[in-house]
Design a protein around this nucleic acid. Structure first.
Length: 681
DNA sequence: ACGTAAAAA
């Protein structure tokens, strides 16, 4: 039982067991001032992992694959690559260290190159999308897992590397999951070909060790302790029917009882809820009794403009308390220093797959135990802390042990296309750590077949077509890659590149619910009656015309960070087109051609207006509605193409384009003949 | 008739 410091437990909570070890992500940690060589060495030696250095190296030398369980603060991610290098293990080929997130890859590389006293990009470097800071000399290379996967497309044996470290494997991102299979296959294939062995180290927090070990034929599991401060965990005595209300009450209980220097982090599920709770907090804070310190209330979620996100890192003015109300972005991606109290509603908004309807549903649901512990760990980063769980201990025991791996919840078309591009002999038989259901694999194969990316012959595994190979060159969802490939036929590649780029980053349109009227008024000038795609195109053109002015973005509720990212994506996609010798033309004022092209690329995602004013999809006759964020929300076009279906309260189509039914027949005659015959009309 | 988590290529 960890010791209890900090404020006394709130009355409505009951103390439960403390944190059993920790399941944290190793966090990037900012750049710190350079220490003297001796001090630096002392610091490195003081890390928990240092004591394990010798035995660890001995095990890693004898095993081709090992699993390492390292708790937060063990120093595993920064130290192990250096140990391996110092022991001469990274001489024949470089050491790759993968991360699920860009910022982590970048800051870890910076940190390790500091420790090695070398310039970033020499001995130690990193590769992430849009940014490659490596050279011939780079022996320790941090990269995103998605980036290593891209590299594998041109070199499935990962010849550059002698060692691959897959970090944060417990997060089970799609990329990590696929990479596990790719690395395993490369390891075996290299052995068959008599090439130098590829060593693999899977690093994870505790929960899924057995799974990884079994997957790698009983690979040895090594443990390293962490350095985490004690956190007292409290549960509610009674189940809470209204977690928002419970969160509000808890916030003010802590606020009235704990010293104001102690900051609070509360986990909620989404933007609207967070903004509402923030407003409630500010309202209540204005009417608190005398002597109660002021409260600085800050929302945090991914679509929040960067300038507002950065505010969570600043300390509250002396004498007042900071409370950050966040989505699960603060679970792993953003680390806030100085958090003493965590409030966990136990809820998260996440995609899940509904096998009955075959639809992906974005729903508020219970977190897993792993996730709850991850949230708890956010309270003990610098010193001891407390976590208030707004559910009972019995309820907690009912939570799923682990979050369902993403690969079992997402559309697999992109994954399969990538596997095919990797020349995996039989994609349906691919050795996944957690195999997705056969139904979903089959659905992905059919989707790719309709897009012309693969061919199925009797008794043979599906094979990539030349179109499919081209599609795989684009870092995009298959349907968008196909749309780009189709665009020369409609002389609108310039426009399609812009639209696809805008759609492949987080929304460039910022919609603060509190300022809805303002947003609508200012956005009017961009709105196209032809739909959201062309509206986005107008926004981008306006943005370019003002030279990407930040001021303009602010005035127009445009997220400048995402806009600049979209511009980078566009440049990358354009490069790929140029390399393929695609003609890049503009359709100029002819928006009809742009819509024709979209109709050809998105023909699987179309819906028709019914006599009663509702819509049904052409594909499965599923009733759908136009999402309120669409510029077509108040319109009733006869036929639309959409980017995606999102099932929340209703099944909504997001990002719509008005299309002509005839174009769809042109795009996929067989498909529509089949669909229309099935439909009563 | 009325609302979108996060992350990556």
């Amino acid at each position: 039982m960890p010791e209890v410091r900090g404020p006394p437990p709130a009355k409505r909570f009951r103390a439960g067991p403390g944190v059993p070890g920790n399941r944290g992500a190793m966090l990037p940690g900012g750049r710190r001032p350079l220490l003297g060589a001796e001090a630096l060495e002392r610091q490195r030696r003081s890390l928990p992992i240092f004591a394990a250095r010798g035995p660890l190296l001995a095990r890693l030398r004898s095993a081709e694959c090992a699993i390492l369980i390292g708790e937060t603060g063990s120093g595993k991610t920064t130290q192990i690559p250096q140990y391996l290098y110092e022991a001469g293990l990274g001489r024949q080929g470089a050491i790759a260290v993968t991360q699920p997130r860009r910022v982590a890859a970048i800051s870890l590389a910076a940190r390790v190159s500091d420790e090695k006293r070398t310039e970033l990009g020499k001995l130690v470097g990193y590769t992430v999308r849009f940014d490659d800071v490596t050279s011939e000399d780079t022996r320790i290379k941090f990269l995103t897992d998605g980036m290593l996967l891209r590299e594998a497309i041109s070199d499935a044996l990962l010849r550059k590397y002698s060692f691959v470290i897959l970090d944060e494997a417990h997060e089970r991102t799609v990329h990590t999951d696929v990479l596990l299979g790719v690395v395993k296959a490369a390891q075996r294939r290299r052995k068959e070909l008599g090439k130098p062995v590829l060593r693999v180290l899977v690093m994870s927090a505790t929960m899924d060790v057995d799974l990884f070990s079994r997957y790698f034929d009983g690979a040895p599991v090594l443990y390293v302790e962490g350095r985490q401060h004690p956190i007292q965990v409290y549960y509610t005595k009674q189940p809470q029917s209204d977690y928002l209300h419970a969160a509000l009450v808890s916030i003010f209980q802590i606020h009235q009882e704990a010293p104001p220097s102690q900051d609070i982090l509360a986990f909620l599920t989404g933007q609207e809820e967070i903004e509402a709770l923030c407003k409630a907090c500010r309202d209540i804070a204005r009417h608190l009794p005398d002597g109660c310190p002021p409260l600085l209330v800050l929302p945090l979620y991914a679509s929040l403009p960067a300038s507002q996100q950065l505010r969570v890192f600043q300390g509250a003015p002396k004498g007042s308390r900071k409370i950050v109300v966040s989505t699960n972005i603060a679970e792993t991606s953003i680390t806030i220093a100085g958090i003493k109290h965590v409030i966990d509603t136990g809820m998260v908004k996440a995609k899940k797959y509904n096998p009955e309807s075959g639809l992906e549903v974005l729903a508020v649901q219970r977190v897993s135990k792993t996730q709850a512990w991850q949230r708890t760990g956010r309270a003990g980063r610098e010193e001891s802390g407390a976590c208030y769980r707004l559910y009972t201990e019995d309820e907690f025991e009912q939570f799923d042990k682990m979050t369902v791996p993403e690969i079992q919840r997402c559309n697999l078309a992109g994954v399969l296309l990538q596997l095919l591009a990797l020349r995996v002999p039989d994609v349906l038989g691919f050795d996944f750590v957690s195999k997705p259901s056969a139904d979903r694999l089959q659905a992905a194969v059919e989707q790719l077949e309709l897009l012309g990316a693969l061919q199925r012959k009797k008794d043979e595994p599906p094979a990539l077509t030349p179109t499919g190979r081209k599609m795989a060159a684009f870092p995009l969802e298959p349907k968008f890659a196909k749309t780009i490939l189709l665009s020369p036929r409609f002389h609108c590649t310039e426009e399609i590149l812009t639209i696809v780029s805008l759609l492949s980053v987080d929304s460039v349109l910022h919609n603060p619910p509190s300022r809805r009227d303002e947003v609508q008024a200012v956005r009017k000038k961009f709105v196209s009656s032809e739909g959201d795609h062309l509206t986005l195109l107008n926004v981008y053109r306006a943005f370019r015309n003002v030279g990407g002015s930040k001021e303009w973005c602010k005035e127009n509720f445009v997220n400048s960070k995402n806009m600049l990212l979209a511009a980078e994506v566009r440049a990358q996609l354009r490069d790929i087109c140029v390399k393929m010798s695609m003609p890049i033309e503009s359709s100029r004022a002819d928006t009809g051609n742009v819509r024709r092209c979209l109709a050809h690329g998105l023909f699987m995602n179309t819906a028709e207006l019914q006599p009663d004013g509702t819509y049904v999809t052409v594909d499965t006759r599923q009733p759908v509605a136009i999402h309120p964020s669409s510029v077509l929300f108040h319109c009733k076009p006869a036929c639309v193409a959409y980017n995606e279906l999102l099932s929340t309260n209703k099944c909504y189509m997001r990002d719509l384009c008005v299309v002509d039914e005839d174009w769809l027949y042109d795009a996929a005659p067989d498909y529509f003949r089949r669909k229309m015959r099935a439909a009563p009309s």
